[in-house]
Nucleic acid binder design. Structure first.
Lengths: 349, 349
DNA sequence: TGACGCAGTGAGAGCGCTCTCACAACCCAG
DNA sequence: CTGGGTTGTGAGAGCGCTCTCACTGCGTCA
């Protein structure tokens, strides 16, 4: 097969295949696109010609007339590198990729690092390069979802979308995640349960803290601001927060950190202060990252269904593409508490 | 501006802009593409029309005539999930993204999970969807690079390419990385230095082991097969290897692991055996992943310049695209040893 | 004054495909 | 046999853009 692989830099066209097969362009197009209204013998001879010439349809020409690009855009609007530290991103990609692989769709990745680049991304999405857009880790009141949706491009947001943007989105139930972590600690007999929360202007940070509070309230435990310290999702932030908690409440016997990285920082500080994990202080992290498993002792952690989130986003997007007028939908996915040694046993006192 | 945002689903065309501006299609095209041969006042009126209509060029039409797609493909040919566990992938993406952002190029991500999907990817790349292809984590004797290059698509491989494939590639100097880790341990006075190496059928695994051996040979240290145990880059693999090493050479006082994950596994086993880190046994990992920093004590680790690798791949690819006939080139990037507490001090005995 | 060059513009071909429509060939009911 | 349907095929328009080429007008130089 393929005795003429791209010798003239032009690529084989429908026209040439038609000539070789002795039929018209239209018939070749029918065969290539699986139209059943072609006589079996004609079909065979066309297929032979396609094979022999190594014909591959020109996507631009096809796209020009069909007005479909067979690809969707994924916009990661994370300004700095945070997203690149934890495995959120690879897992999301894996979920999206798995959902896409069965379709004939490709993924175009856009990682705007500035507002200039973000407007370039908007332009790209609305120019017709993609049949739909997936938007994740938007900050604050990003106008992107609304702008893209207004242009008639199907959009699905991962995480809570900016207020006012009427678009479909898939999110993880961070409140439930925080609550289940703290309920677990309460169930283990812990009495002074602290939290190292994330920035409250980010919905995951805010929601996980809300879950912490809900769990305490539901168990009629008193809350203490000295047990709630904010970090920035980093290890150093976690360590600093832990120091403050230790200073305010030396009797702390459990910590729920809103990320595994912050949990790792907290553990270092606790160890330096002579506390044993989990005997003196129980630890629960969030994300169930490789760090949680590699830690010593391994961290109990709240696992987010990131792969499912990606897959669900694709599902929703295709749904929107199929039914252009459909109303925006919301999908909230449950988290799962993965128990490991860092929160074992009951506190002794 | 934009008083007509996509009402008919068709999009504004050059033709309409030309009519509104009172010029020909050709002139509008010149303005849009920055051709200087346009009278200033005409240019202004065209720009006004473009603004008012919210005109965005149709990429498919443009691509059809220019034969350029303004995008490049990134193929991640990792069959299973390994790649998604460590932050290699995000870092690579960051490097590529940074190098691309200054150009008007987009990134299409292909993650074939089977040979069927891989041939689909090959088809995609050779169909003219992309102006060039970046290929990473190819396994064994993957025919992809050669196939794509044969079709005249510029190609750059990340990591060692399959033997026989004459393509440009960018790799990390794993040999030097392994050697520097072991030299560091020798310099610290360690006497029985073990290695937990990766699978020897993967070039990183093979090369890091070679570096380990080179360093010992250069220091005229005797090598002992009992100090070389293979893992599979996972934590459990590292733990198992460590147990074997401990059984064969209880006097081991340093371990160079070919990944941080394996180092973490080794540390758990060493702790369980009552060894202190770094007093009794020094540890050096590889990758400088978040785990290395989060570990207690934090691991000394060999940092790979992944971001630079991505950026360099893009540079090489653009070079190839600019000079189609150019000979394949190779770039090898140096690693860097990041010292932390896990390998501090001199072994006492 | 005429020849020449050059900046600015428009007409029109053509990129490779899809899809509508017309038409030929054939089948079968009446 | 004729009329109506069905099936298979081809002609041709058109998607929105770029780019070549020809043309006009104007300044410059011999």
């Amino acid at each position: 097969m393929t005795d003429r692989t791209e010798t003239n830099g032009r690529g084989v066209t429908l026209e040439e295949v038609a000539r070789v097969a002795g039929v018209s362009r239209a018939t070749v197009s029918r065969v290539v696109n699986g139209n059943p209204r072609v006589a079996p013998d004609v079909r065979r001879s066309v297929e032979r010609a396609v094979d022999r010439l190594g014909y591959i349809p020109n996507p631009a020409a096809r796209s020009l007339v069909t007005r479909k690009s067979q690809s969707i855009g994924l916009v990661i609007a994370e300004p700095a590198g945070r997203l690149f530290e934890d495995p959120f991103f690879p897992r999301l990609l894996r979920g999206i990729g798995a959902a896409l692989s069965s379709r004939e769709l490709q993924l175009v990745l856009l990682m705007p690092q500035s507002s200039l680049e973000e407007s370039r991304a908007e332009r790209y999405l609305t120019a017709g390069h993609v049949d739909g857009a997936l938007l994740v880790s938007l900050h604050g009141n990003d106008p992107l979802p609304a702008a893209v949706a207004r242009r008639g491009i199907p959009v699905v947001v991962g995480g809570r979308p900016p207020r006012g943007a009427l678009v479909s989105y898939v999110d993880v139930d961070n409140v439930q995640g925080g609550r289940s972590a703290v309920e677990h600690l309460i169930g283990n007999g812990r009495r002074a349960i602290a939290t190292i929360c994330g920035p409250s202007d980010m919905s995951p940070g805010f929601d996980r803290l809300a879950g912490y509070r809900q769990a305490l309230d539901a168990a009629s435990r008193e809350r203490d601001p000295g047990l709630e310290e904010g970090g920035d999702f980093t290890q150093e932030g976690g360590a600093d927060a832990m120091r403050r908690i230790l200073a305010a409440r030396p009797d702390v016997d459990a910590v729920f950190a809103a990320s595994d990285l912050m949990a790792a920082g907290a553990v270092q500080v606790l160890r330096a202060a002579g506390r044993r994990i989990p005997e003196d202080v129980a630890i629960v992290g969030f994300d169930d990252s490789p760090i949680a498993e590699a830690a010593d002792p391994p961290f109990t952690s709240v696992r987010q269904p990131i792969e499912e989130m990606g897959a669900e986003m694709v599902r929703l997007l295709l749904e929107h593409a199929a039914h252009p007028g459909a109303v925006p939908r919301t999908v909230i996915l449950a988290t799962q508490l993965v128990r490991r040694r860092s929160s074992e046993g009951v506190a002794k006192r």
